[in-house]
């Protein structure tokens, strides 16, 4: 029976010997969603995605993808998924078009060749052999081969790692095209900005666990805004306000989860006590900062 979830994972665990790469994660990806699994290297992203693809068998937990158990390697399941692995080469003796044609022939209802080429921006390169493709173009060929079978669900393991900024933007355009085709996409990435641009939801995975999950906006809120101003040292700030003081430029930094209230407390205290808050400003940190902070938090937690 179809559920509205393309992917449902509960209590997933995977160990390699003594090392536990995935430490009990739950994951739900809705049909039609572009879901990003984020995290630093070694967080367990690839292990997770390879379990969903069927390459690895989990030690514990339940996995249902499109209603199938991927570990069974059923042909009907393979008909409905497309896989773009993190590190694979393509057949060097076939042109772009020949490679895509070959993969298309494995599926009952493949995507028309011209559509595959158009979506991945390879139309002009169709006769070229992989040796003459750039890194970004090769990766697009990987995606084209993942897409050729017209899958309902596409797995993309780090589709843009190692790209220059322009190649990444091209790749994002391509992924937006996929969304318009109505595909469900699960991608892994270690770039937070990728999520802002293309994902409808994301989970942050650190050290084998999912530490945060939500829309890109939700994740952005994780990054608390910071109030900064300059003033003399050893200010006697009002109760409840904790500031970080940087001696070099006499700057105070206050991070706040309730900006309005914190600002009110701060500014009314400043007016009453006649303290000048020079260069008063509010900065909202980027997702990347939040991501780095989450990673550091997790690492510190580990050290303790």
């Amino acid at each position: 029976m179809e559920t509205s979830y393309a992917i449902e994972v509960k209590g997933l665990r995977k160990s390699y010997g003594d090392f536990e790469a995935v430490k009990g994660i739950d994951l739900r990806v809705k049909t039609g969603e572009i879901f990003a699994l984020l995290g630093p290297n070694g967080a367990g992203k690839t292990t997770t995605i390879e379990i969903l693809e069927g390459f690895l068998t989990p030690n514990a937990g339940s996995v249902k993808v499109l209603g199938y158990d991927p570990a069974k390697h059923e042909r009907v399941y393979k008909e409905r998924i497309g896989i773009v692995l993190q590190e694979t080469e393509v057949e060097e003796f076939l042109s772009v078009e020949e490679s895509i044609r070959l993969v298309r022939s494995y599926y009952q209802n493949p995507l028309p060749l011209d559509d595959v080429l158009a979506v991945t921006g390879l139309t002009d390169l169709r006769r070229v052999r992989p040796r003459k493709l750039s890194g970004g173009q090769k990766r697009r060929l990987d995606v084209a081969m993942g897409l050729a079978g017209n899958p309902d669900l596409l797995f993309l393991d780090e589709p843009t790692t190692g790209f220059d900024p322009q190649a990444r933007r091209d790749a994002w355009d391509m992924l937006r095209n996929l969304r318009e085709l109505g595909k469900t996409v699960l991608l892994t990435s270690h770039y937070m900005d990728e999520v802002e641009h293309i994902a409808s939801r994301a989970a942050v995975m650190i050290d084998g666990k999912i530490v945060l999950e939500g829309t890109p906006q939700d994740l952005a809120h994780e990054a608390e805004p910071t109030i900064s101003f300059r003033a003399t040292a050893n200010l006697n700030l009002p109760n409840g306000l904790e500031a970080e003081f940087h001696e070099g430029d006499s700057q105070y930094l206050i991070s706040s989860s309730d900006l309005v209230k914190t600002l009110y407390v701060l500014t009314s205290w400043a007016i009453e006590n006649n303290v000048s808050l020079e260069d008063l400003s509010i900065t909202r940190r980027s997702l990347d900062d939040a991501f780095v902070e989450l990673t550091q938090r997790a690492e510190n937690g580990q050290e303790r």
Binding site: F55, R75, K78, V90, Y107
Partner: peptide, 14 residues
């Protein structure tokens, strides 16, 4: 070694 076999395994080709 080049990952081609793994790629096949992800397709419906028996």
């Amino acid at each position: 070694d080049r990952g081609l076999l793994k790629r096949y395994r992800g397709t419906p080709l028996p």
